[in-house]
Protein backbone atom coordinates (compact mmCIF):
# COMPACT_ATOMS: atom_id res chain seq x y z
CA UNK A 1 0.00 0.00 0.00
CA UNK A 2 3.01 2.29 0.32
CA UNK A 3 4.15 2.66 -3.26
CA UNK A 4 1.15 4.39 -4.77
CA UNK A 5 -1.27 1.45 -4.75
CA UNK A 6 -4.41 3.57 -5.08
CA UNK A 7 -7.55 1.50 -5.48
CA UNK A 8 -10.32 3.20 -3.63
CA UNK A 9 -11.97 6.58 -3.41
CA UNK A 10 -9.97 9.02 -1.31
CA UNK A 11 -11.51 11.95 0.51
CA UNK A 12 -9.57 15.21 0.49
CA UNK A 13 -11.71 17.61 2.50
CA UNK A 14 -14.80 17.16 4.62
CA UNK A 15 -17.58 19.49 5.63
CA UNK A 16 -20.65 19.25 7.83
CA UNK A 17 -24.12 19.74 6.38
CA UNK A 18 -27.43 18.92 8.12
CA UNK A 19 -25.56 16.99 10.79
CA UNK A 20 -23.82 14.66 8.36
CA UNK A 21 -20.24 14.59 7.16
CA UNK A 22 -19.72 14.95 3.42
CA UNK A 23 -16.40 14.33 1.69
CA UNK A 24 -14.87 15.98 -1.33
CA UNK A 25 -13.40 12.90 -3.02
CA UNK A 26 -11.19 12.40 -6.05
CA UNK A 27 -14.31 11.43 -8.02
CA UNK A 28 -15.71 14.93 -7.52
CA UNK A 29 -12.43 16.48 -8.64
CA UNK A 30 -12.36 14.35 -11.79
CA UNK A 31 -15.99 15.19 -12.57
CA UNK A 32 -15.33 18.90 -12.13
CA UNK A 33 -12.30 18.71 -14.42
CA UNK A 34 -14.24 16.76 -17.08
CA UNK A 35 -17.18 19.16 -16.98
CA UNK A 36 -14.86 22.17 -17.20
CA UNK A 37 -13.09 20.67 -20.24
CA UNK A 38 -16.43 19.97 -21.95
CA UNK A 39 -17.66 23.51 -21.18
CA UNK A 40 -14.51 25.13 -22.56
CA UNK A 41 -14.66 22.97 -25.71
CA UNK A 42 -18.34 23.89 -26.15
CA UNK A 43 -17.60 27.62 -25.82
CA UNK A 44 -14.76 27.35 -28.36
CA UNK A 45 -17.02 25.39 -30.75
CA UNK A 46 -19.74 28.02 -30.34
CA UNK A 47 -17.28 30.82 -31.24
CA UNK A 48 -16.07 28.93 -34.31
CA UNK A 49 -19.59 28.17 -35.53
CA UNK A 50 -20.71 31.76 -35.01
CA UNK A 51 -17.77 33.12 -36.98
CA UNK A 52 -18.24 30.64 -39.83
CA UNK A 53 -19.06 32.03 -43.25
CA UNK A 54 -21.55 29.78 -45.13
CA UNK A 55 -20.39 31.00 -48.53
CA UNK A 56 -16.80 29.85 -48.02
CA UNK A 57 -15.48 26.33 -47.50
CA UNK A 58 -15.19 25.31 -43.81
CA UNK A 59 -11.90 25.47 -41.95
CA UNK A 60 -10.16 22.64 -40.10
CA UNK A 61 -11.83 23.08 -36.70
CA UNK A 62 -15.27 23.55 -38.21
CA UNK A 63 -14.80 20.34 -40.19
CA UNK A 64 -14.06 18.39 -37.02
CA UNK A 65 -17.14 19.82 -35.28
CA UNK A 66 -19.32 18.95 -38.27
CA UNK A 67 -17.86 15.43 -38.31
CA UNK A 68 -18.73 14.84 -34.63
CA UNK A 69 -22.27 16.24 -34.96
CA UNK A 70 -22.83 14.29 -38.16
CA UNK A 71 -21.63 11.01 -36.61
CA UNK A 72 -23.91 11.44 -33.56
CA UNK A 73 -26.86 12.36 -35.80
CA UNK A 74 -26.39 9.36 -38.08
CA UNK A 75 -25.95 6.87 -35.24
CA UNK A 76 -29.09 8.20 -33.54
CA UNK A 77 -31.03 8.16 -36.80
CA UNK A 78 -30.08 4.56 -37.58
CA UNK A 79 -31.23 3.39 -34.15
CA UNK A 80 -34.33 5.49 -33.49
CA UNK A 81 -35.77 6.03 -36.95
CA UNK A 82 -36.15 9.16 -39.09
CA UNK A 83 -39.29 10.31 -37.30
CA UNK A 84 -38.20 10.53 -33.69
CA UNK A 85 -34.43 10.99 -33.63
CA UNK A 86 -34.46 14.82 -33.59
CA UNK A 87 -35.63 14.96 -30.00
CA UNK A 88 -32.99 12.60 -28.69
CA UNK A 89 -29.77 13.31 -30.57
CA UNK A 90 -28.90 16.19 -28.20
CA UNK A 91 -29.13 14.01 -25.10
CA UNK A 92 -27.35 11.06 -26.74
CA UNK A 93 -24.57 13.35 -27.96
CA UNK A 94 -24.11 14.85 -24.50
CA UNK A 95 -24.06 11.38 -22.94
CA UNK A 96 -21.52 10.08 -25.45
CA UNK A 97 -19.13 13.03 -25.09
CA UNK A 98 -19.34 12.95 -21.28
CA UNK A 99 -18.83 9.18 -21.10
CA UNK A 100 -15.96 9.10 -23.61
CA UNK A 101 -14.13 11.87 -21.74
CA UNK A 102 -14.77 10.50 -18.27
CA UNK A 103 -13.86 6.91 -19.19
CA UNK A 104 -10.59 7.87 -20.83
CA UNK A 105 -9.56 10.44 -18.22
CA UNK A 106 -7.55 7.71 -16.46
CA UNK A 107 -4.85 8.16 -19.08
CA UNK A 108 -4.00 11.53 -17.50
CA UNK A 109 -3.61 10.00 -14.06
CA UNK A 110 -6.99 11.00 -12.68
CA UNK A 111 -9.43 8.47 -11.27
CA UNK A 112 -12.19 7.91 -13.86
CA UNK A 113 -15.48 9.35 -12.53
CA UNK A 114 -17.39 6.35 -13.90
CA UNK A 115 -15.48 4.07 -11.51
CA UNK A 116 -17.82 5.44 -8.84
CA UNK A 117 -21.19 3.73 -8.58
CA UNK A 118 -22.98 6.99 -7.82
CA UNK A 119 -22.36 8.43 -11.25
CA UNK A 120 -23.20 5.35 -13.33
CA UNK A 121 -26.34 4.71 -11.29
CA UNK A 122 -27.43 8.31 -11.80
CA UNK A 123 -26.99 8.01 -15.56
CA UNK A 124 -28.90 4.72 -15.57
CA UNK A 125 -31.76 6.30 -13.58
CA UNK A 126 -32.03 9.02 -16.25
CA UNK A 127 -32.27 6.26 -18.87
CA UNK A 128 -34.93 4.47 -16.80
CA UNK A 129 -37.11 7.57 -16.62
CA UNK A 130 -36.60 8.30 -20.32
CA UNK A 131 -37.72 4.76 -21.21
CA UNK A 132 -40.92 4.92 -19.18
CA UNK A 133 -41.89 8.54 -19.90
CA UNK A 134 -41.55 7.85 -23.62
CA UNK A 135 -43.38 4.55 -23.17
CA UNK A 136 -46.40 6.33 -21.72
CA UNK A 137 -46.16 9.10 -24.32
CA UNK A 138 -46.13 6.85 -27.39
CA UNK A 139 -48.02 3.75 -26.22
CA UNK A 140 -50.45 5.31 -23.71
CA UNK A 141 -51.88 2.72 -21.31
CA UNK A 142 -50.65 -0.23 -23.38
CA UNK A 143 -47.24 0.40 -21.83
CA UNK A 144 -48.73 -0.43 -18.42
CA UNK A 145 -50.87 -3.35 -19.52
CA UNK A 146 -47.90 -4.96 -21.28
CA UNK A 147 -46.54 -5.74 -17.82
CA UNK A 148 -49.46 -8.10 -17.17
CA UNK A 149 -49.53 -9.57 -20.64
CA UNK A 150 -49.20 -13.23 -19.73
CA UNK A 151 -50.76 -13.00 -16.26
CA UNK A 152 -48.55 -15.67 -14.58
CA UNK A 153 -45.38 -13.88 -15.76
CA UNK A 154 -46.22 -10.55 -14.09
CA UNK A 155 -43.50 -10.72 -11.38
CA UNK A 156 -40.85 -11.62 -13.95
CA UNK A 157 -41.88 -8.70 -16.17
CA UNK A 158 -41.66 -6.27 -13.25
CA UNK A 159 -38.25 -7.63 -12.21
CA UNK A 160 -37.12 -7.30 -15.83
CA UNK A 161 -38.09 -3.62 -15.93
CA UNK A 162 -36.35 -2.87 -12.62
CA UNK A 163 -33.23 -4.83 -13.62
CA UNK A 164 -32.58 -2.67 -16.68
CA UNK A 165 -30.99 0.35 -14.92
CA UNK A 166 -29.17 -1.88 -12.43
CA UNK A 167 -27.55 -4.02 -15.12
CA UNK A 168 -26.68 -0.98 -17.25
CA UNK A 169 -25.02 0.86 -14.36
CA UNK A 170 -23.19 -2.21 -13.08
CA UNK A 171 -21.86 -2.97 -16.57
CA UNK A 172 -20.27 0.46 -16.97
CA UNK A 173 -19.09 0.57 -13.34
CA UNK A 174 -17.55 -2.91 -13.40
CA UNK A 175 -15.70 -2.40 -16.66
CA UNK A 176 -14.11 0.89 -15.67
CA UNK A 177 -13.42 -0.17 -12.07
CA UNK A 178 -11.71 -3.39 -13.18
CA UNK A 179 -9.48 -1.36 -15.50
CA UNK A 180 -8.65 1.05 -12.67
CA UNK A 181 -7.81 -1.79 -10.25
CA UNK A 182 -5.61 -3.62 -12.76
CA UNK A 183 -3.74 -0.41 -13.58
CA UNK A 184 -3.25 0.35 -9.86
CA UNK A 185 -1.91 -3.19 -9.29
CA UNK A 186 0.47 -2.84 -12.24
CA UNK A 187 1.74 0.52 -11.00
CA UNK A 188 2.12 -0.71 -7.44
CA UNK A 189 3.65 -4.14 -7.94
CA UNK A 190 5.92 -4.00 -11.00
CA UNK A 191 9.64 -3.19 -10.63
CA UNK A 192 10.69 0.32 -11.55
CA UNK A 193 12.39 -0.36 -14.88
CA UNK A 194 9.33 -2.17 -16.28
CA UNK A 195 7.17 0.84 -15.36
CA UNK A 196 8.85 2.87 -18.09
CA UNK A 197 6.96 1.28 -20.98
CA UNK A 198 4.62 -1.54 -19.93
CA UNK A 199 1.75 0.52 -18.37
CA UNK A 200 1.51 2.56 -21.57
CA UNK A 201 0.50 -0.55 -23.52
CA UNK A 202 -2.14 -1.42 -20.93
CA UNK A 203 -3.45 2.15 -20.80
CA UNK A 204 -4.30 1.88 -24.50
CA UNK A 205 -6.48 -1.16 -23.84
CA UNK A 206 -8.01 -0.42 -20.43
CA UNK A 207 -8.54 3.32 -20.82
CA UNK A 208 -8.89 4.11 -24.51
CA UNK A 209 -10.36 0.93 -26.05
CA UNK A 210 -12.47 -0.31 -23.15
CA UNK A 211 -13.64 3.19 -22.22
CA UNK A 212 -14.72 4.06 -25.75
CA UNK A 213 -16.48 0.70 -26.19
CA UNK A 214 -18.36 1.10 -22.90
CA UNK A 215 -19.40 4.69 -23.70
CA UNK A 216 -20.69 3.47 -27.06
CA UNK A 217 -22.50 0.50 -25.50
CA UNK A 218 -24.18 2.61 -22.80
CA UNK A 219 -25.56 5.17 -25.26
CA UNK A 220 -26.46 2.40 -27.74
CA UNK A 221 -28.48 0.53 -25.10
CA UNK A 222 -30.19 3.78 -24.06
CA UNK A 223 -31.23 4.37 -27.68
CA UNK A 224 -32.38 0.77 -28.20
CA UNK A 225 -34.48 0.72 -25.02
CA UNK A 226 -36.10 4.07 -25.81
CA UNK A 227 -36.73 3.15 -29.46
CA UNK A 228 -38.50 -0.05 -28.36
CA UNK A 229 -41.45 2.18 -27.40
CA UNK A 230 -41.85 3.77 -30.83
CA UNK A 231 -43.08 0.70 -32.68
CA UNK A 232 -46.80 0.14 -32.47
Amino acid sequence: MEQGLDLGINGYASFELFGKTFWLTNTHISVIIVVLVITILAIIANRIIRKADPSKEPGKALNVIELVVDAIDSITRSNMGDKHFRGFCNYIGTLMIFLVLSNTVGIFGLRPPTADYGITFGLAIITFFLIHINGFRYQKMKHLTDLFHPIPLTPINIIGEVATPISMSLRLFGNILSGTIIMALIYGLLPKFLLLFWPGVLHIYFDLFSGAIQAFVFSMLTMVFIAKNFED
Binding site: R171, G174, S178, V217, M220
Partner: peptide, 14 residues
Protein backbone atom coordinates in the same frame (compact mmCIF):
# COMPACT_ATOMS: atom_id res chain seq x y z
CA UNK B 1 -21.51 -8.08 -32.24
CA UNK B 2 -19.99 -5.53 -29.86
CA UNK B 3 -23.41 -4.73 -28.37
CA UNK B 4 -24.21 -8.41 -27.84
CA UNK B 5 -20.81 -9.06 -26.33
CA UNK B 6 -21.22 -6.17 -23.92
CA UNK B 7 -24.58 -7.51 -22.80
CA UNK B 8 -23.17 -11.03 -22.44
CA UNK B 9 -20.39 -9.61 -20.26
CA UNK B 10 -22.84 -8.48 -17.59
CA UNK B 11 -22.97 -11.77 -15.65
CA UNK B 12 -19.19 -11.83 -15.40
CA UNK B 13 -19.21 -8.26 -14.13
CA UNK B 14 -21.74 -9.20 -11.44
Amino acid sequence: MLLGQAVAETTGLY
